[in-house]
Simulated scan of single mutants.
Amino acid sequence: MATPRGVRNNNPGNIDFNPRNAWQGQLGLEVGVAKPRFARFDEPENGIRALGKLLINYRCKDGMPGVGGKGIDTVLETISRWAPSSENDTQAYAEAVAKRLGVRPTDPISIQDPTTLRGLVVGIIVHENGGNPYPDQVIDEGVRRALA
C-alpha cells in the first residue's frame, strides 16, 4: 500500500502550501505529484506543529451563526474551516473527530487545552491519511511545539 501523501510530505494535516506562511521546518511545495498543492516539512513534528498552530489561530476567526460561542470554538466549526464542504463531507469528518474527543460536534471545546488539541490533531491525521502512523512521542512533540 502506498504511503499517504500527507505522511510522505511530513504534513499529516495536508496543509496547502502558501509561500507567505514561513512555517518552522517548511521545505516548500510538495514534489513528485502531478498537481502539487500541499506544503512539505522537514519532519512530522513540524508538520504537526503547523497543523496545531492553524487550529489555535482559527479560534479568533468568525464561527458559524448559532453554533458554540464567539469565534470558532466547536469541532464542527473547526473542521468546517479546515476541510470545506466543497472538498469534503464536512459533517461526517466533524462527527468522527468529535467522537474521538468524546464531545458532540457543536459542543464548545478549549483548543488551548493540550489534551483537546492533541485529540483534534490525531482526528485530523486519521481522517486525512486513513490512519495515524506516528508514535505518541511524535504527536506529543508536535502538539507541544504548537502550544509553545
Rank of each mutant, 00 (worst) to 15 (best):
A2C: 13
A2V: 15
G6N: 10
V7T: 07
N9R: 02
I15C: 01
I15K: 02
D16R: 14
D16Y: 10
D16W: 05
F17E: 02
N18W: 14
P19D: 06
P19W: 10
P19N: 06
R20S: 07
A22Y: 08
A22E: 14
Q24A: 11
Q24M: 14
Q24G: 02
G25T: 04
Q26E: 10
Q26D: 01
L27H: 06
L27C: 07
E30L: 09
V31H: 13
V31P: 02
G32C: 08
G32I: 11
V33P: 02
A34S: 11
P36K: 13
F38P: 04
A39L: 04
A39H: 02
A39W: 05
R40A: 14
R40Q: 14
F41S: 01
F41Q: 02
D42V: 12
E43W: 03
P44K: 10
E45L: 00
N46A: 03
I48G: 04
A50Y: 11
K53R: 10
K53N: 00
K53L: 00
L55T: 09
C60F: 05
C60K: 06
K61N: 05
M64R: 12
P65H: 03
G66S: 03
G68I: 11
G69V: 12
K70T: 04
K70Q: 06
G71L: 08
G71A: 00
D73Q: 07
D73M: 04
D73V: 06
E77A: 13
I79K: 05
I79P: 01
W82V: 00
A83S: 06
A83H: 05
S85A: 11
S86M: 11
S86W: 14
N88P: 06
N88G: 07
D89M: 09
D89G: 03
T90W: 13
T90D: 03
Q91T: 05
Q91A: 07
A94E: 09
A94V: 07
A94H: 10
A96P: 00
A96G: 01
V97P: 04
V97W: 14
K99Y: 13
R100N: 06
R100I: 02
L101M: 13
L101N: 09
G102M: 13
P108C: 07
I109M: 12
I109V: 15
S110D: 08
I111F: 08
Q112I: 15
Q112T: 15
Q112N: 15
Q112F: 15
P114Y: 15
P114A: 11
P114S: 15
T115C: 00
T115G: 00
R118W: 13
G119V: 02
V121Y: 12
V122D: 07
G123C: 08
G123A: 08
G123E: 10
I125L: 11
I125S: 04
H127W: 13
H127E: 13
H127R: 13
E128Q: 14
N129Y: 02
G130Y: 14
G130Q: 12
G131V: 09
G131R: 09
G131L: 10
G131T: 09
N132G: 03
P133E: 04
P133N: 00
Y134S: 01
Y134D: 01
P135N: 12
D136W: 15
Q137M: 02
Q137I: 07
Q137G: 00
V138G: 01
V138E: 03
D140W: 10
E141L: 12
E141F: 09
R144N: 00
R144C: 00
R145N: 01
A148N: 12
